[in-house]
């Protein structure tokens, strides 16, 4: 068995437990796993931003300052119920995600989809909706990194959204991202009316992508919107 990321041989530890129960498949070696930082303990209830290491002035009770701003804005208030991110977007995860979506190493989805399955247990939802790529970007990359998580998890996805081709998100500032006119359209309204939607994406940075998608879904009759991302930037 080799580590899915670094390719080093993994020697599984045999214990009584592993002999008698069906052990979970090991995908990453200990060294790689150690470099990932799980988000646990004290964090923003709305967006999973860890409070550890965050200056006091960026925290308001159980919320982070960013979320207070989103919720305090009547235009965005109540759009997103809760976002859950699993790992801190540290240098190591940056490299892993970059290899996954930019270099196109699809199989890394096999590791990330496990995190998705784990998180979904805590959510009540009807539909899994991946954040889409534009046609151009999809062709360039060969696959949609959010969609791949759902497929590899063996779950059903609902392609409820379509994306209009624009400049790359990562090249814009927060202000630019927020004030963008909507970059999504609804594919089929009947799919989503009255449903609880779980949006799936790879990274939560400012939250604006998810907010835009969420707002559009709500305008078209979705009951509630939550979200999952691998990383919290």
């Amino acid at each position: 068995m080799r580590c899915l990321y670094c390719g080093e041989k993994i020697i599984p530890v045999v214990s009584w437990g592993s002999l008698f129960s069906r052990e979970e498949e090991i995908l990453l070696c200990e060294q790689c796993k150690d470099q990932l930082t799980l988000i646990e303990g004290d964090c923003c209830v709305r967006c999973s931003r860890p409070f550890d290491g965050l200056a006091v002035e960026y925290r308001k009770g159980e919320y982070c300052y960013d979320c207070v701003r989103w919720e305090g804005d009547i235009e965005w208030n109540g759009i997103l119920e809760r976002n859950r991110s699993l790992y801190l977007y540290n240098d190591f995860l940056k490299e892993v995600i970059s290899r996954y979506k930019f270099r196109g190493d699809y199989v890394l989805a096999r590791f990330f989809c496990k995190t998705l399955i784990q998180v979904l247990k805590d959510f009540d939802y009807d539909l899994l909706v991946p954040i889409p790529l534009s046609q151009e970007r999809l062709y360039e990359r060969g696959f949609n990194q959010a969609e791949a998580l759902i497929i590899e998890a063996g779950l059903t996805l609902t392609p409820a959204l379509k994306r209009i081709h624009t400049e790359k998100q990562s090249k814009k500032s927060r202000e630019e991202r927020i004030h963008l006119s909507n970059i999504f359209t609804i594919v089929n309204e009947e799919d989503i009316v009255g449903k609880k939607v779980m949006l799936i994406d790879d990274i939560y940075t400012t939250g604006s992508t998810l907010m835009h998608a969420g707002k559009l879904l709500k305008q078209h009759g979705t009951l509630s919107v939550s979200s999952f991302t691998i990383a919290r930037g």
Binding site: Y139, G142, F143
Partner: peptide, 11 residues
Amino acid sequence: PELFAVFPCAR
């Protein structure tokens, strides 16, 4: 063979 993988190609 361990260093090849398969993916559903959008192209």
